[in-house]
Design a protein around this nucleic acid. Structure first.
Lengths: 207, 207
DNA sequence: GGCGACATACTGAACGTTTAGTATGTTCGA
DNA sequence: TCGAACATACTAAACGTTCAGTATGTCGCC
């Protein structure tokens, strides 16, 4: 199964034949069919395995959360680690994109995992807001979407262009940027942001 | 060719058979081979077309740049538009991810386009720094990576979960966050960011 | 105008290869 | 001996590509 995970991560589901997995694992197709009903069952088992690992790694790494900025930084570090030291993130991203219009059931599984991830992140943001560390005029779910998106975008750019995109540095930037944004009060935005400032003030007053 | 673009955007290259394109276009496979040498030539023509369109749309939309924050906001708006009104962004993202380990030549094409995009973004950030609108202690290329990553992450989350992820709102957040980060001076970060503040001060002094 | 020669844009069938899956055979340990 | 865990040989369908043939358009010559 480890071999299947590696092949799916690199070539995707459609691009990975049973023969490829079998020969990479040094067994025959028949042996694979002994263990798995069909190709799709192999895929789903692999996905289940990787999703469980991801959630254990991410959620497990910062529980309980007491310091929200440090927690976000730690999650970013874990993501950098799993993106560079093994293929867990690559697996998830590759198959998530592939599944969008080709496999509704798989797409739903990935939707769920990302929803849980964002929900977990939103919890951290909310804790920061309760502690007064983060400002309260931002919806926690929006901040979570930004963070999750930043993580995904950083990883994809790194996979695509490892020479130019240092994942650790970009991911640190993702955290810095979000934490900075969540800790800046609208009153303290520097002068020179003309239209921006006006828009922000309007938002405050409507609350 | 329009049909091929649509199929590639949704199902990827491997997941799109010549038969599928042919029947979707209402012609035979032979007719496709009359026009294109092979499946891969069709792919490359499609990619060339979409890349040209993307660059025209994005770069063309905010030239010349005089107001960097507004330019970034406009680029985000253009990305939202093309991501929701046609399949251009979907095409690029789907094939970019698929090409990572399956097609080195195509992967290079996508690396190039993303490098150009980031380079363009970095130019806007640098202009903002020269104008004194953006702070100068951030490398423009890093800011560009963050913005590009934010855009990609927002789009992917939206494609995956359109119910929960409003692309316009998240993309606006991407811009707000980056502009806010680029316009906050380290001295003006609010109190209460203990470890963070220390780290930032050290960085200033080493300069 | 008509016709032959040629070009263009297809068609349906055929080709060779690859795919996921299946049927049957083999080996080894309990 | 039996059954788990394979291996081998095979199948039907799908894949990308090619082929011979067809329909239509264009051009130049008589």
């Amino acid at each position: 199964m480890t071999t299947a995970i590696d092949c799916f991560a690199r070539y995707g589901y459609q691009g990975t034949s049973i023969d490829r997995i079998a020969s990479a694992a040094g067994v025959t197709k028949g042996a694979l069919y002994y263990h798995f009903r069909d190709k799709e069952e192999l895929l789903f088992e692999a996905v289940k395995d990787r999703i469980a690992e991801f959630e254990e790694r991410v959620v497990g790494s910062v529980s309980p959360v007491t310091d929200p900025p440090a927690a976000l930084a730690e999650i970013a570090r874990v993501c950098v680690h799993i993106a560079t030291k093994n293929n867990l993130r690559r697996f998830i991203l590759t198959l998530m994109v592939e599944a969008l219009d080709t496999n509704p059931r798989l797409s739903q599984a990935f939707r769920d995992i990302l929803r849980r991830f964002r929900s977990y992140l939103a919890g951290i943001v909310r804790l920061g807001q309760e502690q007064g560390v983060f400002r309260s005029d931002v919806e926690a779910s929006r901040a979570a979407q930004l963070f999750a998106g930043g993580v995904i975008g950083a990883e994809l750019q790194h996979y695509q262009d490892p020479e130019r995109v240092d994942l650790g540095v970009v991911m640190q930037g993702v955290v810095d940027q979000l934490v900075s944004w969540l800790t800046v009060d609208a009153d303290q935005l520097p002068h020179g942001v003309h239209a921006k400032r006006g828009a922000r003030n309007n938002r405050r007053e409507s609350r």
